[in-house]
Amino acid sequence: MAPAAWLKRAQVRSCALEGEAQSPRAGAHATRADSRRAAPSDAQLAHYASTALIDEAQLTPKPALVDQRGSGAHRDLDLATMLCSAQALEPTFAALARTARRRGEPSALLRTELAQIGRAGEQDMLRATGGSNAHRGAIWIVGLLVAGAAMDACAVSPASTFAAASDRRSTAGHTEHPDASQICTRAAQVACFPDRFAAPSDSHGERARQRYQVGGARREAQDGFPHVIDVGLPALLAARAKGIEENAARVDALLAIMASLDDTCLLHRAGLPGLHAGQHGARRVLQAGGSSTPAGRAALAALEHELLSLNASPGGAADLLAATLFLDMLAHHRAGRSPDPWNI
């Protein structure tokens, strides 16, 4: 993205913050801000990132994905492997946070250093799982957000403010939440720098991205994680606001992401029929009332049956749900509440 575009986005956020400073409630907001906990340490960021991967893996039921019922459409993965991978990546996330905090600002040098750490972390993951590529996409997606959070002195404000922020839309249709958006923006700025030492990629996702001319994980990051900020977090918080229990709220957030994401995992495994099955099926579940309703559960079972028949699974959406849960944990940390209060 051009530097002018980043400047414009920064100016919009600056104006929004200035407007809030003029609010009659500014004093109350400042008092609450002063009472928040300090920004999380590198070790805490790494723990939250690993926990987000664990929570995503354990979330059940997920359509055609590894969960507590089984391996879904995957023959080389199971829940134990996913949990082992998530735990093995915690030192990688800590190194990403430490490096980003030391550099302080997005730069080409930081991009190079983070890429080297990520590649080393991928090897750690492969060794820990016996060669299973459980979280390659998550190293990129969640790892960049870890770096963005480490660079951001304000971290994330309480999760409850996301609900109010979901009503404030820019002309581009993006949720305007200054703190979470700032983390995503910093991560996106890093992603926009080239990885100078990367070998030509022949990953499944890259092949699908080129064949079907979709953005993939790279574009998602460079665009500022729109499926996290504008889809996943608002869906999660809207479900909670309706009183939906936490497990179903998280499943519905996953479905909301699936409904609009051009998931390269679906495209790789089943082409356009797989992508359309995932998107349309997710919409049907949500239109039926979500995974907490009888009609929604029936639609979810039908979606899973169709994806399994195509040997397809929405792995890209799963990575973005983990990113959503990571930012949600940061919100609870800053609010002085347990970052993982739901005990699902």
Results as ranks from 00 to 15, higher is better:
Ala88Thr: 07
Glu122Asp: 09
Glu90His: 02
Ala94Met: 09
Leu109His: 08
Thr99Trp: 04
Arg102Pro: 09
Cys84Ala: 15
Ala80Tyr: 13
Ala95His: 10
Gly70Thr: 11
Leu77Lys: 10
Ser107Lys: 03
Gly121Trp: 02
Ala88Cys: 07
Gly104Thr: 04
Gly72Leu: 14
Ala80Lys: 12
Arg103Ser: 09
Ala115Ser: 15
Met82Leu: 15
Leu109Cys: 08
Gly118Met: 04
Phe93Tyr: 12
Thr81Asp: 07
Met82Ile: 14
Val66Gly: 03
Ala108Gly: 11
Arg98Phe: 05
Gln87Glu: 15
Thr92Val: 05
Leu110Gln: 06
Arg111His: 07
Arg75Asp: 15
Ala64Gln: 12
Leu77Thr: 05
Gln68Leu: 14
Ile117Gln: 00
Asp67Phe: 10
Ala108Met: 03
Leu79Gln: 10
Glu105Gly: 05
Arg102Leu: 14
Phe93Asn: 02
Asp67Trp: 07
Glu122Trp: 03
Gly121Asp: 06
Cys84Gln: 14
Arg69Tyr: 15
Gly121Cys: 04
Arg102Met: 06
Ala120Tyr: 05
Gln87Thr: 15
Ala86Arg: 05
Leu83Gln: 01
Gln116Cys: 04
Leu65Lys: 06
Gly121Gln: 00
Arg102Gly: 11
Val66Ile: 12
Pro63Val: 09
Phe93Ser: 00
Val66Glu: 08
Phe93Leu: 00
Leu114Cys: 05
Gln116Pro: 00
Ala94Pro: 01
Leu114Pro: 07
Glu113Asp: 15
Met82Glu: 13
Ile117Ala: 01
Ala73Ile: 13
Arg102Ile: 09
Gln116Phe: 00
Leu83Ala: 04
His74Ala: 12
Glu113Arg: 02
Gly118Asn: 06
Ala97Arg: 04
Leu79Trp: 15
Ala95Met: 03
Ala64Ser: 15
Gly70Asp: 14
Asp78Phe: 13
